[in-house]
Amino acid sequence: MRGYLGIDVGSVSTNLVVIDDDCNVLIDVYLRTRGQPIQVVQEGMRQVEEAIKGKNIEICGVGTTGSARILTGVIVGADTVKNEITAHAVAASHMVPDVQTVLEIGGQDSKIILLRDGIVVDFAMNTVCAAGTGSFLDHQAARLNIPIEQFGELALESKSPVRIAGRCSVFAESDMVHKQQMGHPVQDIIAGLCDALVRNYLNNVGKGKEILPPVVFQGGVAANVGIRAAFERALGLEVFVPEYFHVMGAIGAALLAKSAIRGKGRTQFRGFAVSDMEYKATSFECNGCPNLCEIVNISVNGEVLARWGGRCGKWETLQKTG
């Protein structure tokens, strides 16, 4: 059977999926990036290899996405390297063909994507504000000593959410602490936080956007039923969370790889052996001009594989990526 591998390496999680020719998800792997994109991709590849063993699946195309998409693309030998906005839109419109609005909240990013008649017509992604993303929720769950998985359900237990300032994660936290020290129950505080995040999201990335149904909510934060409920309250619309909400970027990358292969025929996939190679990333500051670019070197088994980060291109000539 032919399989297509999609890899989404984000700030917080790294996801790998394998789909078949009919776009069914055969395998999905969800790992934490933990600041080590290379190692986690290798670990993910090991798990995918393990999962397809004996299933007679041949990887015929590979796509990467997420903030480490270029790095990952070099490591695995990707056929297509695509930004996560396009990847998420492709996956959403595949899963829910008539989708008009995609809400996506990941670890560091939150985005809104508007589609009409199956094509992306507008999008926005947070630029200078990270309040309301998964990392912040993680941090608050840890601070309150509540497993992140239970965070959303606790929010649903609240009868009267308290008001939390959602503009900035630092101020949101102090607001939460103030309310907690006043004696408000933790459920009401968490529910208030969910409302605040949704308010900030809609006012920040969602500003001026025409949010029409069907609305799909995806990304790691979509696991949080409290946030989902807060979205439904704020929008007055039903918010649909797809089955594979947590790996939608990877699914998008796999779908894009599948269509890229149709165009060019042969995959550049380097094989599962990449999980055992020794990849090394080093960096230095180039002093050639006042730009002082930070150049990154990627080498495998001691040989330089790719280099990037410069503005003038004098370091990149080795291999063109992206």
């Binding site: 903030s67 695509k82 930004n83 996560e84 906005i85 396009t86 094509i119 992306v120 017509v121 507008d122 999008f123 992604m125 630029t127 992206g322």
Partner: peptide, 12 residues
């Protein structure tokens, strides 16, 4: 971050 947004905008 900028490249991601520009790439997506060009796709659109």
């Amino acid at each position: 971050g900028i490249e991601t947004r520009l790439e997506a905008f060009l796709d659109l």
